[in-house]
Lab assay of single mutants.
Amino acid sequence: LTELETIYVTKEHLQETDVVRAVYRVLKNCPSVALKKKAKCLLSKWKA
């Protein structure tokens, strides 16, 4: 997740890969609050 925060991701990348699905899975299933927060921030950033 940290690496995903530092790289530039285009909408095309998100549509062509399962990155969003994987990050969403972390948000829903990971017991770590810190990782959930990171995943939520990434998804919000990409949605904007």
Rank of each mutant, 00 (worst) to 15 (best):
L1E: 06
L1M: 14
T2W: 02
T2Q: 08
T2P: 03
T2A: 05
E3Q: 07
E3G: 05
L4F: 10
L4Q: 13
L4I: 08
L4S: 14
L4G: 13
L4V: 07
E5A: 07
E5Y: 03
E5W: 01
E5R: 01
T6F: 07
T6V: 02
I7S: 13
I7N: 12
I7R: 11
Y8C: 04
V9Y: 08
V9Q: 15
T10P: 13
K11S: 11
K11H: 00
K11Q: 08
K11R: 06
E12I: 02
E12R: 07
H13Q: 10
H13R: 09
H13K: 13
H13I: 02
L14S: 15
L14V: 14
Q15W: 12
Q15P: 13
Q15I: 04
E16K: 08
E16N: 08
T17W: 09
T17Y: 01
T17N: 13
T17Q: 02
T17F: 01
D18C: 09
D18K: 09
D18Y: 12
D18H: 12
D18N: 14
D18E: 05
V19C: 07
V19S: 04
V20N: 02
V20L: 13
V20A: 11
V20K: 08
V20C: 10
V20D: 07
V20W: 12
R21H: 10
R21P: 04
R21C: 04
R21W: 03
R21A: 04
R21L: 01
R21T: 05
A22R: 15
A22F: 06
A22W: 14
A22Y: 10
A22P: 08
V23D: 03
V23R: 05
V23K: 03
Y24S: 10
R25N: 09
R25E: 01
R25M: 04
R25T: 03
V26H: 07
V26I: 09
L27H: 00
L27C: 00
L27F: 01
L27Y: 05
K28S: 05
K28M: 01
K28L: 07
N29G: 06
N29H: 06
C30L: 12
C30G: 11
C30A: 06
C30E: 00
P31V: 15
P31C: 15
S32G: 14
S32W: 14
S32H: 13
A34S: 10
A34I: 01
A34Y: 08
A34C: 13
L35G: 00
K37R: 12
K37G: 03
K38F: 08
K38M: 11
K38N: 14
K38E: 00
K38H: 03
C41N: 15
C41G: 12
C41F: 11
C41H: 14
L42H: 00
L42T: 02
L42C: 01
L43A: 01
L43P: 01
L43M: 09
L43T: 00
L43R: 00
L43Y: 07
S44F: 08
S44M: 08
S44A: 07
S44H: 12
K45N: 05
W46E: 00
W46Y: 04
K47A: 02
K47T: 05
K47R: 05
K47M: 07
K47I: 04
K47D: 01
A48V: 03
A48W: 04
